[in-house]
Write a protein that binds this DNA or RNA. Structure first.
Length: 561
DNA sequence: TCTGCCGGCGCG
DNA sequence: AAAGCGCGCCGGCAGA
């Protein structure tokens, strides 16, 4: 569990202040990295990776394995008992914000028979007991290890940064938006489009960036819409619409990822977002600052490796339906998923007639669509893949009834809140107001769609964590090559391939050019290993689309046969 | 002037 | 072609 020994043989290291202490024995701060390096097989335990591991990285060292008490606690509190009672319940002394843990940056190493003098050790013991009481400790442990490995990767990627070419970014901005006016700062193309829109609306002052004002101007011009959102405007036959939609597209780029973003977020050729592992309720990562998870496709060309290096960019095709096939053990869906394109497989099986239909049917099945084309196609999918569909349908009905669901590895969806329960019981009472019944039905439907999607999105996030952890270990095994680069991404990454980006089902690895093939193989092998770890021998595969980004352009790799 | 909410849209 | 899940971020705006 802890790499070496068990919860009883722990050594406590205190990184507070200038001194580093091991048990009651002080370690010089400068030796912290050496302490870590000297124990390559240890699973390090600490309250918060963003504090403890960040300082270790800055000191020039890395660790192979970790146990992040804060992240693990969040999972464990509801993994065994969804109501959050029990040894890790909210009444417990140790919580996410316990200052005695976080502020001291404690960490624990596998060592010999040190007394558990610290709360972190007590917390770790509670967590290990909780894992042991789970229905499937092996799966839950895999999740906790994966979550913690993710926290390591998040810190490493933050330090290394995503190689970002500001010149390419600026060129895309001026090509798309035009030159900025020296007087107002408004890009030329946007100003022209705004003029066209105002002329077509017969209103030369309306602020296009204010939805209420724009809506009134649209109505005055005879355009009957209830909102100014794109999907509604697109249907309207009016000369103002086309330039307006284009204006909105450009305004979005300017506001979200324009010159100001570049100025604020890109330094020394690196974009350094803060990743938040487990930040999404389903277990997906969130990000904080810089919109790391929302970089528009248009700006992807700005991702460029250093000279002599490459970026290996890999993503999984149709991760969520593959995961659904695996967790439901639906052999027919797994058969459709064999090869590169699951949607084509569904067409070949005769469930629907076109790839587009297959796509909408699958998305509808996972999101709970009830209307439209997507909603109409779902029943056909249900007939063709009853095993997989039963799993998501059951998850939906559990949610509608106020129950909860869990991912494949055991992350629990939150229970309904008090408001939801009150509404449900009010609607269930004799002679309830039809309006209340209607609201309750809608709330039940919302929750059903949430729990339906939760098990799939959450399990996909678990697969991705396994992939990330496996890949990280394989990259480390490749070792270092070549001369150190002259940049500021930190000695730790100067000569070895390292992860620089992760987005739900995609990773990027920055690597010396001569290691490109080895990295590509590592990414593929990691995906294979992640599938095995999650689903054992069940025959579901996770094919990757891999491209290698060179300094002077992209070299697409042939898809494997 | 500050704070929190909302519409809208980028990503998966 | 369509409105079903999960996010973060921005500007506008209403209320404090």
């Amino acid at each position: 569990m802890l790499g070496r020994g068990d919860a009883g043989s722990l050594e406590l290291v205190d990184l507070s202040g200038d001194g580093v202490e091991s048990g009651r024995r002080p370690w010089p701060a400068a030796d912290a990295a050496a302490v870590v390096t000297a124990r390559p097989d240890t699973r390090w335990v600490w309250a918060d990776s963003a504090r403890a591991y960040r300082s270790i990285l800055r000191a020039g060292s890395r660790v192979a394995r970790a146990w992040d008490l804060r992240l693990c606690r969040r999972i464990l509190r509801t993994a065994v008992d969804p109501a959050g009672r029990g040894p890790l319940g909210p009444a417990d002394a140790w919580d996410d914000t316990a200052p005695s843990i976080e502020d001291e940056g404690l960490f624990v190493v596998g060592a010999q028979d040190e007394p558990s003098v610290d709360e972190a050790v007590a917390e770790l013991r509670r967590q290990l007991r909780t894992v042991a009481s789970a229905p499937d400790p092996t799966r839950l442990t895999l999740l906790l290890h994966g979550e913690s490995a993710g926290a390591l990767v998040a810190e490493e990627m933050h330090l290394a940064g995503l190689p970002w070419d500001a010149q390419v970014h600026e060129r895309i901005l001026t090509d798309t938006l035009g030159q900025r006016s020296p007087a107002s700062g408004v890009p030329e193309r946007m100003a022209e489009l705004a003029d066209h829109v105002r002329a077509a609306l017969g209103d030369d002052t309306v602020n296009l960036d204010s939805p209420p004002k724009l809506l009134r101007a649209l109505r005055r011009a005879g355009i009957q819409v209830a909102s100014t959102s794109r999907w509604e405007l697109a249907d309207q036959p009016h000369p103002a619409i086309e330039p307006l939609l284009e204006y909105k597209r450009l305004a979005r780029l300017l506001v979200a990822n324009g010159w100001a973003w570049l100025q604020e977020w890109v330094r020394d050729g690196r974009f350094r977002p803060v990743y938040v592992p487990g930040g999404v309720v389903t277990g997906r990562w969130a990000s904080s600052g810089g919109g790391a998870l929302q970089i528009p496709r248009l700006l992807r060309p700005a991702v460029r490796p250093d000279r002599g290096w490459v970026i290996v960019d890999a993503d999984v095709a149709q991760l969520e339906p593959r995961v659904l096939a695996g967790m439901s053990r639906d052999l027919r869906m797994a058969e459709a998923a064999r090869g590169r394109d699951l949607y084509a497989g569904i067409v070949a099986a005769g469930a629907v007639s076109t790839r587009e239909e297959a796509k909408y049917a699958v998305l509808g099945a996972m999101y709970g669509a009830t209307t439209g084309q997507s909603g109409r196609l779902v029943p056909r999918l249900r007939r063709a893949y009853p095993v997989a569909m039963r799993l998501v349908d059951d998850a939906a009905s559990a949610g509608e009834d106020g129950g909860t669901v869990q991912t494949w590895l055991g992350r629990a969806a939150p229970q309904p809140d008090a408001e939801w329960l009150d509404l449900a019981s009010a609607a269930g009472a004799e002679g309830a107001d039809p309006l209340v019944r209607d609201r309750a039905r809608r709330a039940a439907g919302d929750r059903g769609r949430f729990t339906r999607n939760f098990i799939v999105q959450g399990t996909a996030a678990e697969w991705a964590l396994c992939w990330l952890a496996e890949l990280r270990a394989r990259l480390d095994a490749l070792g270092a090559v070549g001369a150190p680069r002259a940049d500021r991404s930190g000695e730790v990454f100067a000569t070895r391939p390292h992860l620089v980006f992760f987005l739900h089902d995609e990773v990027m690895v920055h690597a010396p050019r001569e290691m490109a093939d080895a990295v590509r193989a590592a990414v593929e092998a990691a995906a294979e290993a992640a599938g095995r770890r999650m689903f054992g021998s069940f025959p579901i595969d996770f094919p990757l689309d891999v491209r290698v980004i060179e300094t002077d352009g992209v070299t697409p790799h042939d898809p494997p046969g």
